[in-house]
Amino acid sequence: MFSKACEYGIRASIFIATKSSKGIRVGIKDVAKEIDSPEPFTAKIMQILTKNGIINSTKGVGGGFEVSPEAAKSIKLIQIVDAIDGNKIYSGCGIGLKECSEEHPCPVHHEFKKIRGLLLEMLKNTTLEQLASDVKSGDFFLKATNANN
């Protein structure tokens, strides 16, 4: 549903928010490793998130990426999605047709419209702080774990 860049952007934002809540800034290598993303690709995503005011970047010794706990309370998931993927997910056709509307619907139009509405509500109502808190609790994870470890 989301682009790979958006998936990584969401995971990176959550990871940074969990570390920031403990007063820790993280570097690009740590972010890329934690979200299982190639470092150059992660760097491009971080540029987008920083440019859009979602993540703060500090250069130099002791620098890195962070998001203040106050900002994490107000940053909604929709802001991350919009920054990376734009808003096409809320209006695009479920099977990718260029033209799909109430007057000329595709076979999944009506059901997909309901799903898009639910997705939009979740994105509007979920804060970065909520997601970071879920990960910090240990009940939710940002990357797959090997069951044999």
Rank of each mutant, 00 (worst) to 15 (best):
S13V: 01
N87V: 14
I14R: 06
A72Y: 00
P40N: 09
S133C: 04
I75H: 03
E102I: 08
R116Y: 03
T126H: 03
G138Y: 01
F112M: 12
T127F: 02
N146R: 04
S68T: 12
E7D: 14
F112V: 08
P107I: 05
S91Q: 05
Q79V: 05
G117W: 05
P107W: 00
A83Q: 05
A83C: 03
S20R: 02
L123V: 08
V26I: 11
I45F: 00
I14W: 10
A71R: 13
P38D: 13
I80R: 02
A132D: 08
A132N: 06
S74F: 06
T50P: 02
I78M: 13
Q79P: 10
N87L: 13
I54D: 08
I115D: 06
G64C: 11
P40D: 15
I84M: 11
K114S: 10
G9W: 02
V31A: 13
S57C: 05
F15G: 09
G60D: 14
K88A: 15
A17P: 03
L118M: 06
A32F: 03
I35V: 08
S91V: 13
G27N: 15
P40A: 10
F112H: 08
I54P: 05
N149V: 12
P105H: 13
N125Y: 00
V26G: 14
A144S: 12
S3Y: 07
I115S: 07
S74R: 09
S133Q: 05
G86D: 00
T42Q: 12
I48R: 09
L97W: 02
K73I: 06
N146P: 01
R116E: 08
H110Y: 11
F65L: 04
K76R: 13
D30E: 15
I80G: 04
S137C: 12
G92V: 12
S133W: 05
K29C: 06
D139W: 03
T58N: 08
Y90V: 07
N125W: 00
K113G: 06
F140L: 12
S133R: 08
G96W: 11
A147W: 07
L49T: 08
S13F: 01
L97D: 06
M122W: 03
A72N: 01
F65G: 06
E70Q: 14
E129S: 01
L128A: 03
P107S: 07
I14Y: 13
R116N: 10
C106V: 10
S57L: 15
E66R: 14
A144P: 09
T42S: 11
A43V: 09
H109E: 06
S37E: 09
S68C: 00
I24A: 13
G138E: 03
G60E: 14
L97H: 01
S133G: 11
I89D: 10
T145P: 04
L77P: 02
D134R: 15
K22Q: 15
P69Q: 06
L118W: 02
K33T: 07
K88S: 12
A71I: 03
G138C: 00
N87Q: 15
E99N: 14
I48E: 02
A83Y: 02
F65N: 10
M122N: 04
